[in-house]
């Protein structure tokens, strides 16, 4: 995809995040181009989510730099990230259970009239529009999201990320709570957004999902990047080997590979 644009949309350089003495992310560099999907894979605790939280402003990195459009960006909270057009679908969905879909969609970015009074009708209208596109069966606009199904909640979280014309989308396990039909819907959405030139980081446990959708795949292991590969250059087994052994395919011996399959 490098021919689409010469400057990466996002370039993360030497990112470090530590929790107490634990180095959750250690000297990680990663980039993303417009119209590209980069799959981020790795075992539990590999640092995928922590790295993405650094980009989304949820947890500022302890050191390292992030460039957006080739210019140094300063992202220290979610508001900053959104100002750069970075939207995030969190694994936890990050929905306030007690308020309705529209209130969640516009949380922190409410529509108001001239004197700052909430314009609930306008918000509901916009929510109805975006939900028609994502989940035509969705009708529970007036109910707190607590009473919605897992799939409906997920579509609210996705709608929130999509509605604000994101240029960079972080999707952390976006299909975890979904059934087969809904998962297919999300996949279609990802392809569509990619077509529109949005850069997407796709974090997933599901290696098949990633192989289906990603252009490049970055593998993390114990807080570090094992390697970033073009999807077309590798097999699923090779990527699995990277995830489990924490080594690029070239360094994996036949013996290790055999043990892996043993």
């Amino acid at each position: 995809m490098n021919d689409v644009a010469h400057t990466p949309l996002v370039e993360m350089r030497n990112i470090r995040v530590a929790f107490g003495g634990v180095h959750a992310v250690e000297d990680v560099s990663l980039d993303l181009y417009a119209g590209e999907v980069v799959g981020l894979v790795g075992g539990n605790g590999a640092g995928k989510s922590t790295l993405m939280r650094a980009l989304s402003g949820a947890r500022a990195p302890d050191s390292g730099e992030i460039d957006i459009d080739g210019r140094l960006a300063s992202i220290s909270n979610p508001r900053d990230a959104k100002a750069y057009g970075i939207e995030t679908i969190y694994q936890t969905l990050a929905l306030a259970d007690n308020i309705d879909a529209a209130a969640n969609l516009f949380l922190g970015r409410e529509l108001t009239d001239r004197v700052g009074t909430l314009d609930d009708s306008a918000m509901e209208s916009a929510t109805r529009k975006v939900m028609t596109r994502l989940n035509p069966n969705f009708t529970a606009f007036k109910r707190p999201v607590k009473s919605l199904s897992g799939g409906q909640r997920q579509s609210v979280a996705i709608a929130r990320a999509v509605h604000f014309n994101a240029r960079i989308l972080i999707m952390d396990e976006p299909t975890a709570a979904l059934g087969p039909a809904e998962t297919e819907q999300v996949r279609d959405l990802i392809r569509q957004l990619k077509q529109e030139g949005i850069g997407i980081f796709l974090v997933s446990h599901d290696i098949h999902d990633v192989f289906d959708l990603a252009d490049r795949i970055s593998v993390m292991y114990h807080g570090r990047i094992v390697g970033t590969v073009n999807k077309d250059d590798v097999t699923i087994d090779e990527v699995l080997g990277m995830i489990i052994l924490g080594k690029p395919p070239t360094e994996v011996t036949q013996k290790e590979l055999a043990e892996l399959h043993g």
Partner: peptide, 16 residues
């Protein structure tokens, strides 16, 4: 206030 009561993390991530 209600969003914070419903889910403090979501409120924080929403930029509140």
């Amino acid at each position: 206030v209600f969003a914070i009561g419903g889910n403090p993390d979501a409120a924080e991530l929403g930029g509140i």
